[in-house]
């Protein structure tokens, strides 16, 4: 692990990302537009928007990081650059760290814009501070990155990588309490929900929504998401092989 190589790698990935203007615009604008749409749909029920809009603020960066990481890493794997990097002094953790920094910057920019739009223009209200929402969103996005890194090992084409979205992302969206309260789900579904990390991101957001002060319950939930991100990163790094067949 070399900090210098990690930052060089992050710089290269950011340069690639910035070279693709259309993707940059999509990353920065789409979440704000979607949250604005939800706000318009729920115009008559600001309370509902307060909870749904808030959850989406953390969910979008998670989903985006999952998507762009799984596709870009798949490109590294199939384009031969990963094999090349594995013959250079680049360590596996340098590469993963580079992705985390570069896409973390992208997720932070996206969240900053979406959160500003939601708080300033769409009337989103939370009892707790906005920085806590920001923090939860960034940690959820790092979990998305790690998950994307991991599943990229199981796709051989970009088409397959896209198909992993409904498998790894959508169930977390459906079961996290966004579309249906968790305590009204069947017991076994609650069990599944308890095992999905995004559930804890949503719990943490709920803490911020109802409590003016930062609660220890929120830190606990954030820690669960962070731990899940670390486990997924370790699993993902293990899929980066120096020797292949």
């Amino acid at each position: 692990m070399s900090l210098r190589i990690t930052f060089i790698t992050a710089g290269r990935i950011l340069r690639q990302l910035l070279g693709d203007r259309r993707t940059v615009v999509l990353i920065l604008a789409v979440p704000s537009l979607m949250i604005a749409l939800i706000s318009a749909i729920m115009d008559a029920a600001p309370e509902a928007f307060n909870s749904v809009g808030l959850i989406l603020l953390a969910f979008f960066p998670f989903m985006m990081m999952f998507m762009i990481t799984s596709i870009t890493l798949l490109r590294e794997r199939t384009g031969g650059t990963l094999e090349r990097l594995m013959t250079t002094p680049t360590g596996k953790l340098d590469l993963v760290g580079g992705y985390a920094i570069a896409f973390g910057v992208a997720a932070a920019s996206q969240t900053a814009i979406a959160a500003s739009v939601a708080y300033l223009f769409l009337g989103l209200e939370t009892a707790g501070p906005a920085w806590a929402v920001f923090l939860i969103a960034i940690i959820a996005s790092l979990f998305g990155m790690a998950l994307g890194l991991f599943v990229s090992a199981f796709a051989t084409t970009e088409f397959q990588a896209i198909q992993f979205m409904p498998v790894f992302v959508v169930p977390q969206l459906l079961l996290c309490g966004l579309i249906w309260p968790r305590d009204q789900m069947a017991g076994w579904l609650q069990g599944v929900s308890d095992a999905l990390p995004i559930t804890y991101a949503v719990k943490a957001l709920t803490e911020v929504q109802v409590n003016a002060e930062i609660t220890s319950a929120m830190w606990g939930d954030v820690a669960v998401v962070a731990a899940a991100a670390l486990v997924a990163t370790a699993l993902g790094a293990a899929t980066l092989r120096r020797r292949t067949n």
């Binding site: 693709d20 031969g80 090349r84």
Partner: peptide, 12 residues
């Protein structure tokens, strides 16, 4: 190591 298919980043 120079691979047979150029291992470079097409978007750079």
């Amino acid at each position: 190591y120079v691979t047979q298919d150029a291992s470079i980043y097409p978007d750079l």
